[in-house]
Design a binder for these strands. Sequence first.
DNA 1: AGTAGCACCTGATTGC
DNA 2: TGCAATCAGGTGCTAC
Length: 281
Amino acid sequence: MGARVTDVEVRRDSAVRLHPGGADEFAAHLTGATLTEVARRGKFLWVTLDDTPWALSAHLGMSGQFRVHSGHGDAPAPHAHCRVRMRLHGRQGALTLDFLDQRTFGYLHVEPLVDTADAAPGGAGTVLAAVPRSVAHIGRDALDPAMTPAGAVAAWRRGSRGIKQVLLDQTRVSGVGNIYADEALWRARIHPEQRVSALSVRRAGELFEATRLVMEAALAQGGTSFDSLYVNVNGESGYFSRSLEAYGRGGEPCARCGSALVRRVIGGRSSHFCPRCQRLR
DNA sequence: AGTAGCACCTGATTGC
DNA sequence: TGCAATCAGGTGCTAC
C-alpha cells in the first residue's frame, strides 16, 4: 500500500450511490489521498486514507471485483463492466485500479471510521474496532479471532427464524453467504429450516465449527468460482466449487448417505440439503 | 426490536 | 428466429 490516488473516473454513477455527495464529491474526496491499510469485515472491505479517520469503503455485491494493472496509458482500455477507474502512484510506479461489476449490486463510497465496542461472550471480552460507518451494524466475521464460538452461538440463537436465514444475517456473524451457508449446514447435519430457538448450544457450536472449516477450506483454494465473475485482482479463479457437497447439487446423491439432495427456496434464497442427514426436529 | 418483502441490475438460460 | 419469462447473487430500505 502507500499508493496515492491521482485520478478518479466514475464511469457509472450508481456505483457510488451510497456516497452522500454523488460521483463528483466521491472523486474529489479520493483524489490526492494515499491508500494506506486494507481491512475487511465479512463481505465489507475498506482502505484507510492517509492517517485520517476516513476510508474508501467497498462492497462487491455479487459480481464486483477489483483488478490491478501496471501503468496508466499502457493499461488496457476499461472493460465494459468497469464502473470506476482509479489511477495510482505507488512505490512501484504507476498503477491502474479498476472496479468492475457486471450486475451492479456492488458499490464504493468514502466514509468516516467509527469506533465500535462489541462484547464477545465466551472469554475475549470487549474488543474495540474502528470500522466504516456503514459497517458498524455488521457482526464480526466468522474467521475473526474476536468472534468466539460462544459469541457466535449466542448471536445465532436469538429470535424465531430458521437457521438458514439467520446464517445469512450479516448483523449476527458476517462473511457467510448462500453457498457457504448450505455447505456448513450440510457438514453439521442441520436442516436449513430448523428454528434457531430450538437449536441447542451444542449443535450451534458444531455449526460454527463447520462454518469455519468450510470458509478456511474455500479460502485455501482461492474461493468458489463458477466463472470469470469471481476472481482475484489478477483475474484468476478459485477452485472451491469442485469441493461443494450441497450447493447446486439438487437431485444428486448425498456424499454421506446417497439420498437425493433437495433444492428448496428458503427465505427467498435457493437452498440445498440432504433430507436424510439433515432432519427437521 | 425482530422480521418480511421488495428494489436494485445484468446476462445466461429456458420456454413458448 | 424472436421475444418473454426466469434465475442468480447481497445488500439497503420501508413497512409491519
